[in-house]
Amino acid sequence: MQPTRQIQAWLLLLPALCLLVAFTHYPVIKTIVRSFFGFGTRWESQATLENYRYLLEDEVLMQVLYNSFLYAAITVPVSIVLAIAMALWVNSKMAGKGILRTAYFTPTVLPMISVANIWLFFYSPEIGLLNKLLGLVGHGGINWLGDPEVALYSLMAMTIWKEAGFFMIFYLAALQTIDSNLYHAAAIENANKWTVFRRITFPLLMPTTLFVLVNALLNAFKLVDHLFILTKGGPNNASNLLLYYIFENAFSFFDTAYAAALTVLMLVILVVLALLQFGVIEKRVHYR
């Protein structure tokens, strides 16, 4: 009885397992193996650490890593703070909150490519909306995507605009599970709005915050679509991010081996970040 059940179980798992192995596990292993071999397709050559050695010397990579971390360090907290603020707002009793909720959520529904195209119209130097507005107040305009000092921040603004609404939905759902009697109890004690938020709402939202934080951080490294439309990583790599750099190496420079090494680096970064988050924050999260 027992062995047949085992076989049955494996047979049932087989279809999903085939897909997982073919499209996830095998490529991961292949990537790791590939990262130990030289440029191009010379499989017969000796395994080497050359790709990893180059990681340390690659100045563009340093720029890209700096960009990626700055990108995450700014977009993640700002989106979360905005998401909480919007959720608190649309959770209150007021007229037209349904419309407001929809409005906040719309950017999430749009594909990143469309969003980037919309923002391209905002950011264009001559005909762009932002520069037109600046022109009204007599400002000469900013080269939003062409100025190396500004380009990365322009991308961040767009990302925050797109992500905050998505995270708001999670916070909104979490807010609605909080017992309204807790707020009544706090009101009886004359607790002001800030105390209520700091001592009740925010701590009770912690599980959601952890979830959103993990997702936001992963997204910050995973989102790359907008770069194709807006800056292509330029000017002079000022807005280049790790994933786009991997793409460039693999499909523009055809250095698949180095791209594989970069991919391994990215995997390591993401795993370390996830472990840190679960380890550090979970201790301070209240789960009911």
Binding site: N181, A185, N190, A191, I200, P203, L204
Partner: peptide, 23 residues
């Protein structure tokens, strides 16, 4: 309150002191 309305993330002590701290 009927459901007690205790703050689930605060200890018993902090629950009792909540009002005094708020005031």
């Amino acid at each position: 309150f009927q459901s007690y309305a205790l703050f689930p993330h605060l200890s018993v002590k902090e629950n009792i002191l909540f009002g005094l701290k708020a005031r």
